[in-house]
């Protein structure tokens, strides 16, 4: 499941790094944190369970709260393959 969390614009990577550190020490089931170049002011959190923003691990500076609901996995797949189509054709 993918959840979106709003952050201060420009702080996406810093928020992701702090959150990653927090979830590792607290044992929350966050699998990965995605920061697409084109998505300003958001980070995407991959988690098996619904994220609990009340958990102290989610108290990170410049984090502004979660977006309600899950994001379908196929919607984030475009972020995973950011290469232009022409580049992939050349590789083939």
């Amino acid at each position: 499941m993918i959840y979106a969390i709003r952050t201060l614009v420009g702080q996406e990577k810093n928020v992701a790094r702090l959150l990653a550190r927090n979830v590792k020490t607290s044992g929350i089931e966050v699998r990965s944190i995605l920061v697409p170049e084109t998505l300003k002011g958001y980070i995407l959190v991959e988690s098996d369970t619904k994220i609990d923003m009340q958990n102290p691990a989610f108290k990170v500076p410049h984090m502004k709260g979660a977006i309600e609901g899950e994001i379908p996995y196929d919607e984030i797949q475009t972020f995973l393959n950011p290469e232009p189509i022409t580049a992939s054709i050349k590789k083939g």
């Binding site: 992701a16 590792k24 089931e29 699998r31 990965s32 995605l34 991959e46 797949q77």
Partner: peptide, 17 residues
């Protein structure tokens, strides 16, 4: 460009992809 932190690669669909 683009940034990803993999916390748990064995259970991450993004890491698998």
């Amino acid at each position: 460009s683009g940034f990803l932190i993999v916390v748990d690669p064995e259970n991450s669909n993004i890491a698998k992809d």
